[in-house]
Amino acid sequence: MIEVFRSLFAPPRHFILLIAALWIGLALAEKRSERHGVSKEQLNNLTFNSLIAYVIGGRLLFALSNFSAFSQSPFSIFSPNPDLFDPMSGLVAAILVGLIYGQRQKLRLWGTLDALTPIFAMLAIGLHLAHLAAGTAFGSPTSLPWGIDLWNAVRHPTQLYELLASLLIFGWLWSRKADSPSGLLFLHFAALTAGARLFLEAFRGDSILILGGLRLAQIVAWAILLIVFIASESVRRQSQSL
């Protein structure tokens, strides 16, 4: 079954999964955006503008950081090849454009992040499905009976672990009542996602190791957890003082 799925969505078709996740996430987010003080139109515009910024920013900053390669073939900047892309730069560009749009529309930060949370949660599901299809984010070798045969070894199915975690996170967030202070929905999503990554990274076979074998992703996830806990307390205090 996994092999059929991997054949069906083998790269570069795995991008379909991400696009589908974004579309479903946006459709779901639209249903509840009004309760967070964001109209459907604002949500759509914010998502669309950020998406465009992600694509253009990721390509432009990749080109700038590889200037000598692009200066010899400048038309490569228009290539449809998705490998000419820096995802982190794209993300920074998307956040910047989102912040500018939000400020112009006078959107509240925490309410807007709550409104966007279904999109983030669905994108996480899409990302893990894409990882499963591409065989990336693979696990370390294991002798456990549920190991999957991948890259010439039986490995922890880390893509499935992470997919299951993201499905549970989405299910829990979607079933929550809308009575918590503004911002907590997003912060809970961030905490649960960081917590899941911190735990599941231990089973990955492609971790970046630092300082005598510590896994970089776990340290980043731990730092995110710390920031989220501090932010949660701040959000609660603000809501109590109102």
Partner: peptide, 29 residues
């Protein structure tokens, strides 16, 4: 408690051998 557990798990699950996939198993990845 969550932060302490997270920190402990990070150290417990560290890959002290520094083993990576590189150079070990031939695979098209």
């Amino acid at each position: 408690l969550v932060l302490l557990l997270g920190l402990a798990w990070t150290f417990v699950s560290a890959d002290k051998t520094g083993i990576s996939t590189a150079g070990q198993i031939p695979a098209p990845q």
